[in-house]
C-alpha cells in the first residue's frame, strides 16, 4: 500500500489519534496535580459546539472558531472550578461527572442552536492533518516546559501530599485551578479540531463514555510522563481497528487486553520508574 492509499484509508484514524492524544494530555494535567476530574469530554463538547456554531452560523474564519473553542471551555472551567476545586478524590470525580451530564443535557435541549439529539450536520471540514500535528506538538512542548518548571514541581508536590505542598509555600488552590482550566482549554481545542474533521457532531459523543475513554487513555499509557498519554491514546484509538479481523469478538478482546495491561502494569505502560529499575541491575541498586 503506498502512502496515498494508506492516507485515504487510515487518514481519519490518524487524525482521530491526534485529537485523542490532545484529550489524553488534557486529563494528564489534572491527574499530574492529583485531581480526578473527569469533565474533559464535556469541555471537548463545549469547544466542539462553540467552534462549529461560529463557523456555521457566523461564518467565522477557522482560526477564530478554534480560538473560541479553546477560550469558551476555559472560561466555563474557571466558573465551575471555583466551587469544585475544593473537592478531592471521588467527590471531585462525581461533581465533574455531574457537570458533564449537565452539559450534555443542555446541548440536547438547546435544539434551535445545537440541533439537539440530531446533532450538528454539515460542519465544514477545515481541519488539515498539519493542524492536528501542530496542535499536538505545541501542547506537548508547552506541557514539557510546565513539567520542568516551578509549576511542574508544585504539581508533583500537590499530587504527593497537599498539606506538605501548602507548608512549603505552594499556592495549592491556584495551581489546581491552573491545571483544571488549562486541561479544559486543551480538551476544547481537541473538540474544535475534531468538529471540523468529522462533518457531524452530536451530544452523545461528549457523554460519560467519552469521559471514561479519555481517563482510560491517560491511565493506561501512564501518567508518569508526557509519553504515557500519547501512547495510551494510540492504543485506545488503534486497538479496535487492529482487532477488526476478530469480527464480533473484537470489543471483548479489546476489553481483555485493557484489563490485562491495567492488572500487570498498574502505573501504566510508560513508567519511567520501572524503566529505571530495568536499567539498574538489582545488585547495584542494593549497593
Amino acid at each position: 500500500m503506498d502512502l496515498q492509499n494508506f492516507w485515504d484509508v487510515y487518514g481519519n484514524l490518524v487524525l482521530t489519534l491526534g485529537t485523542n492524544a490532545l484529550l489524553a494530555l488534557s486529563i494528564w494535567l489534572t491527574l499530574a496535580c492529583g485531581m480526578l476530574a473527569v469533565a474533559n469530554a464535556a469541555f471537548m463538547g463545549i469547544g466542539a459546539y462553540t467552534a462549529a456554531l461560529l463557523t456555521m452560523k457566523c461564518g467565522a474564519p477557522f482560526a477564530l472558531s478554534l480560538a473560541a473553542g479553546i477560550i469558551m471551555p476555559a472560561l466555563i472551567a474557571v466558573i465551575i472550578g471555583l466551587p469544585v476545586i475544593r473537592l478531592s478524590g471521588v467527590y471531585l470525580a462525581m461533581a465533574t461527572l455531574a457537570f458533564g451530564e449537565v452539559v450534555r443535557v443542555f446541548i440536547l435541549n438547546a435544539e434551535s442552536w445545537t440541533g439537539g439529539a440530531m446533532g450538528l450536520n454539515g460542519i465544514p471540514q477545515y481541519t488539515q492533518w498539519w493542524h492536528v500535528l501542530l496542535a499536538v506538538v505545541l501542547v506537548l512542548l508547552a506541557l514539557w516546559r510546565v513539567r520542568a518548571s516551578k509549576i511542574g514541581r508544585a504539581f508533583d508536590a500537590i499530587r504527593g501530599d497537599e498539606t506538605a505542598a501548602s507548608l512549603m509555600g505552594v499556592d495549592v488552590r491556584t495551581r489546581k485551578m491552573q491545571a483544571f482550566v488549562a486541561g479544559a482549554a486543551i480538551a476544547g481545542l481537541a473538540g474544535a479540531l475534531n468538529a471540523h474533521l468529522t462533518f457531524f457532531i452530536s451530544p452523545g459523543e461528549f457523554g460519560f463514555d467519552k469521559g471514561v475513554e479519555i481517563l482510560t487513555m491517560a491511565i493506561l499509557g501512564g501518567t508518569g510522563g508526557l509519553a504515557g498519554p500519547i501512547l495510551g491514546a494510540g492504543i485506545i484509538t488503534v486497538l479496535p481497528e487492529a482487532l477488526r479481523g476478530l469480527a464480533d469478538y473484537r470489543l471483548m478482546v479489546n476489553g481483555v487486553i485493557l484489563v490485562l495491561i491495567v492488572l500487570f502494569l498498574p502505573q501504566g505502560i510508560w513508567d519511567p520508574a520501572r524503566f529505571k529499575r530495568w536499567l539498574v541491575p538489582k545488585k547495584a541498586a542494593h549497593a
Binding site: D156, A157, G160, D161, T163, A164, L167, M168, G169
Partner: peptide, 13 residues
C-alpha cells in the same frame, strides 16, 4: 514554616 506531624515526606521522590 512548619514541619508537620507524620513528616509528610514525598516517598516517591
Amino acid at each position: 514554616v512548619q514541619v508537620p506531624e507524620g513528616r509528610a515526606i514525598l516517598t516517591t521522590l
